Amino acid sequence: MKGFCTVLTATAVLLAAGCQAKEPPTQVVYRFDDHRYLELTGWDCEGALWYTDTHRGIRTQPYSQFYRLFTRKFIHQSERYIAITSWDVSGFIVSKDYGQTWQLAQFSPSGNEPNGDNSAPREDAVSFTVVNDQGFLQTKHRLYMSSKPFDDPRVVEGGPGITYTLEDGTVQRIEPNSPGWKWGMVYLTKQGLEGKVVSHETNYQGLPDKVPEVKGYTGWDHMRCDMDKGR
């Protein structure tokens, strides 16, 4: 009986070892160029997202968990301003310093869609393009974009502020200590920009009506992921 128990114990140990969870796989899911790429660590193409720039020695984590790939066309030429959205296109994680630090960017509070919603339905997304430090989300009915890549010098610290006049003759001011949205941090449509105070700041003026042409791009045009990786 003692020998039989020994055999059972050894078998249980082997079974337990075989059932131990594997480490989640890591795979490259997007390449910007020959030295910048995104990696996903997780099962079933969901998990933590890592950004790497081998030339600048940068490796950071835009998403710590639960990231799911943006499945539409994705062209990203910009290096200083990096913007990433996910499958549901509910917002953006952005870096304005080559990927060293990351912040959450969102859609403007209201008025982008005809029904007053701030963002389009996920199924309306067509493409996301980041070029010249500016992001452009094209949907079936609207073009969402971030501002031009600078803050109006009149409303930065020490600036003179901006004075403007409303249609009824009322004089208004934007003070340097209370400026509008910082560049690259809000995505909105030109329709939604109408009547907004930030429309008086130069980085929100002269915005394009279509996604700018991207020339000489060598990166991927879609994110890629192997659902069976690590199985």
Rank of each mutant, 00 (worst) to 15 (best):
P179A: 06
P24E: 07
G216E: 14
A105E: 02
S127G: 13
D168W: 04
Y63L: 05
Y81D: 07
Y67N: 10
Y37R: 10
V198L: 15
W87Q: 12
Y63F: 15
A48M: 10
W87M: 05
W50P: 01
V28C: 03
V171N: 08
E201W: 06
G111K: 08
D168T: 09
V155G: 04
R31A: 08
K140C: 00
D117S: 14
V211A: 11
F32W: 12
G230D: 05
S64A: 15
M227Y: 13
S95G: 11
V29S: 05
R231S: 13
S90I: 01
D117Q: 12
N132P: 00
R59M: 06
N132M: 13
W181A: 15
V131D: 06
R142P: 01
G116A: 04
Y30S: 07
V197Y: 06
T60Q: 09
V28Q: 09
K210G: 04
D228V: 02
Y98V: 00
K210S: 15
D168Q: 03
Y144S: 10
D34Y: 02
I75D: 02
F66I: 01
F136K: 03
Y51K: 03
Q103Y: 11
I58K: 03
G230L: 05
T163E: 14
G161Y: 04
D228S: 11
P160F: 12
P149I: 14
F70Y: 15
N115H: 09
H76M: 13
C19F: 12
L166A: 12
A125G: 08
F4L: 13
Y164V: 03
Q191Y: 01
K182Q: 12
G99A: 10
L14E: 00
T189D: 05
W220Y: 10
F150D: 08
Q205K: 11
K140W: 00
D221K: 13
E79Y: 08
Q191C: 00
Q20P: 00
G206A: 08
D209H: 10
L104F: 01
W50D: 07
R72W: 04
G42M: 03
R142G: 02
Q205I: 08
S86Y: 01
G184K: 03
P208F: 04
H55N: 15
R122Y: 02
S178W: 07
A12W: 08
H55L: 15
H222Y: 14
Y204T: 05
G116N: 08
C45G: 13
